[in-house]
Amino acid sequence: MTWRTMNSIMSIALIMGAIGYALNLNHSASQTIFFASSGVGPTYFPNVLAALVVILSLVTLVKNLRDKSKENCAVILTPNAGYILATFALVVAFLLSWQFFGFFYLNAFVLLTVLMTLYRIEFGLKNSLIVGLITSVSTTGFLYVLFGQVLALSL
């Protein structure tokens, strides 16, 4: 994907987001009877903001489509894109597991071990797993003492 395409997608997403925000705003506000002598009710200011986002995003979109420079048409390079996606997926799995099963510290230990092993995989699976396990045990222990015991935080 090129920067030009990505910029266009973002502008369109912002326009759609602003419209969605305005629709939801006016729908929820319309269910309440309110009176504002000045004509400036609770939806006035947010509607102005949404309208401005739509206008400025359109400006960006048009500017971007007209910009055919080399930099704008270059393909986006994201080093370690696979690691970013894997991190995102692992955090989602961690959150689901924590939300539905609890056991924060166990989940945190697993997440830390898997992430560190994955990030250091270039040093070999065995090496990175051992380093990951040792670091995760000590980090989780530290987190438990700090948040679970000292700050008495219920996680």
Binding site: Y21, N24, S28, A29, T32, F34, G41, P42
Partner: peptide, 11 residues
């Protein structure tokens, strides 16, 4: 909204 109590963009 603190002035009118209306829900705004809470989805």
């Amino acid at each position: 909204d603190t002035l009118t109590g209306v829900n705004r963009a809470t989805f």
